[in-house]
């Protein structure tokens, strides 16, 4: 195995994506809205398609905006259906995102002659190609550094999410913990909800090219859930989730490079491997977490039982 500069960029892009996603992801997990990430990431398809049909370019800023708007709309529609129709929120989410996905699929197929937008590309992305798309060149201490567009975009999204979490930390926290309390304290819980949804939508859309719209769910949810098993403090959880996500990006790419060789295959998708890596981390925490791990808990229960028997 040889490690090229490209590989470093792939890991950097993956890590930026993971860190950007982990911050809103923690709040999704705590607010029991994990599937909203899934819903939004599927539902952005028509937004991407419409913006693409209008501008004819995949790199455009308008495409970004279009998709993000549809992403937030997913949350709005879901809330409407579950409030007005008294439908279980999971079901209303399912109805909204499948419908939007179907619209997106129809648009893409209708436009297949005019433009080249492969739905597969939207779903699982192409992180291997991302480093080739250079946005700008920086010179740092005499060394020329070619910054890929994906790194720039995801870096900005990460910064955006980080600033929101820093500035609205206590508001997000209280709105996640107890929306009614938040409202009585004059914090608009609904506004905080949509702020979070905007973060998720923006992150998803920014990530779809790099890791694909479905794998970003792994980045949103899995490191956050892992961190949730490891700590009881929100601040620590945010940092841990971001760190774990970044580590999973590195481990995922390494696995994508090594694993196919060992098994006798040609190559494997890095973005898929990154999702698998987050899963492996979760599995470890699920079993071994110091307080909430399955093995740890079993041992504690045994010990209690044992001490009962002794006394």
């Amino acid at each position: 195995m040889t490690w090229y500069a490209i590989d470093t960029w792939i890991v950097v892009i993956g890590a930026l994506c993971a860190m950007a996603a982990a911050l809103p992801g923690c709040f999704l997990v705590l607010r029991k809205m994990s599937m909203m990430g899934d819903a939004i990431s599927h539902a952005v398809l028509p937004g991407l398609a419409i913006a693409f049909l209008v501008t004819g370019s995949r790199a455009s800023f308008s495409m970004f905006i279009g998709a993000a708007i549809v992403g937030v709309l997913t949350a709005v529609f879901t809330q409407w259906i579950s409030n007005w129709g008294k439908v279980d929120s999971g079901a209303s989410m399912g109805i909204v995102f499948t419908t939007l996905f179907a619209v997106g699929l129809l648009l893409i197929v209708q436009a297949a002659d005019h433009v080249d937008l492969d739905p597969g590309c939207v779903l699982y992305g192409a992180i291997e190609l991302a480093p080739w798309d250079i946005a700008t060149t920086w010179t740092l201490g005499g060394v020329q550094l070619e910054i890929p567009r994906a790194a720039l975009v995801l870096g900005s999204v990460f910064l955006f999410n980080l600033l929101i979490v820093i500035f609205f930390f206590k508001e997000l926290k209280i709105a996640a913990f107890d929306p009614d309390l938040a409202t009585t304290q004059g914090i608009n819980a609904n506004l905080m909800h949509y702020l979070l949804m905007t973060q998720v939508a923006v992150t998803t859309v920014a990530s779809f090219e790099a890791v694909g719209s479905i794998i970003v769910i792994a980045m949103l949810i899995v490191p956050a859930a892992t961190a949730h098993l490891l700590t009881d403090r929100l601040g620590v959880m945010l940092i841990l989730a971001a760190g774990l996500g970044a580590m999973a990006a590195g481990a995922g790419h390494l696995m994508a490079l090594l694993l196919p060789g060992w098994l006798g295959f040609e190559s494997a998708t890095t973005s898929g491997m990154m999702a698998v890596a987050t899963g492996v981390f979760f599995l470890l925490a699920w079993m071994l977490a110091p307080r909430y791990g399955l093995l740890t808990k079993t041992l504690t229960t045994k010990r209690i039982r044992h001490s009962r028997e002794l006394s």
Binding site: R291, Y292, T300, I304, R308
Partner: peptide, 15 residues
């Protein structure tokens, strides 16, 4: 007989 229930580390009801 000798019922103890524990959540996490803490017994909730015991003996």
């Amino acid at each position: 007989h000798d019922l103890t229930v524990a959540y996490h580390r803490k017994p909730v009801i015991w003996d």
